[in-house]
Amino acid sequence: MMHGLWLDIGPVTQIEPGSARTLPVVGGEEIAVFRTMRGEIYALVNKCPHKQGPLSQGIIHGDSVTCPLHNFRISLKTGEALGDDEGCTPTIPLKVDAGRIFLLREAVLGPVPAQQAA
């Protein structure tokens, strides 16, 4: 189990199964939140390891997404490029509780400054 602070980014139902939505981070990398056809939720930095294509806009099948720019296939579980391609996109640890999605704050924004970590 992952410990730390979690950011509530709202209900699972905001994302249609088989699609993805985006979460810009001021001063950080935009995050893509995917919901597979089977209902699993994954979050990745919204950048293909090839040439930074927005993975959120690809076609999702099983638990991978095909990049809209040059068809790299990226695993939603690990962020790694599948098949013959190479490269890896960072994943964001996440949990779903009572129908809401939580992202690990540290992975979104970096470590909490010391005086604020209660």
């Binding site: 905001q14 699609s19 939505r21 985006t22 979460l23 001021v26 995050i31 604020q116």
Partner: peptide, 16 residues
């Protein structure tokens, strides 16, 4: 609209 709109935006300073 879900295909276009962001889920939201993370603004670290305001949040903290």
């Amino acid at each position: 609209n879900d295909l276009h709109a962001h889920l939201g935006e993370v603004r670290p300073l305001l949040l903290e």
